[in-house]
């Protein structure tokens, strides 16, 4: 069973994405909290992390680093309002995540990514 953790700052977006991925058969966890994202990873061992790296008005790349320390194989999809040209973009780029999407994101593309990334899960 493929597990997805969605860490997005907007609760309504989180809930809608959860409903969507669940109807497609994925076990989905959501949180708006950086700390809880790490806790869920420790507890549930998700295959894919879909994360908005700006949480509580701060760039929270430490969350990705902490989650990768727990599971170095986890696939990481970042969706963000940091764009090329923003200082923070370089920091995100340095993390070499599996996919980076500027908001507004394309949900169909993210779904395709999840399918490809988890085809052996």
């Amino acid at each position: 069973m493929t597990k997805i953790l969605i860490a997005e700052r907007e609760p309504e977006v989180n809930k809608s994405l959860k409903d969507f991925f669940q109807t497609l058969g994925y076990t989905t966890f959501i949180t708006t909290s950086p700390e809880e994202a790490v806790e869920i990873t420790e507890r549930e061992n998700p295959n894919v992390l879909i994360i908005d790296v700006r949480m509580r008005s701060e760039l929270r790349l430490d969350v990705i680093k902490a989650i990768r320390r727990i599971d170095k194989n986890i696939k990481v999809i970042v969706m963000s309002t940091y764009y090329k040209g923003d200082e923070e973009f370089k920091e995100i780029e340095a993390l070499k995540v599996d996919r980076y999407y500027e908001k507004p994101v394309n949900i169909a593309k993210i779904l395709d990514d999840v399918r490809i990334m988890t085809k052996d899960a």
Partner: peptide, 26 residues
């Protein structure tokens, strides 16, 4: 920060319509 918040709200609109479409197409 305000620009990010503004972009985030627009991103919310964008996510919602796409979820509707994704259900319809899937």
């Amino acid at each position: 920060l305000l620009f990010h918040d503004l972009s985030g709200r627009i991103g919310g609109i964008n996510t919602m319509w796409q979820i509707c479409i994704a259900y319809i197409k899937k």
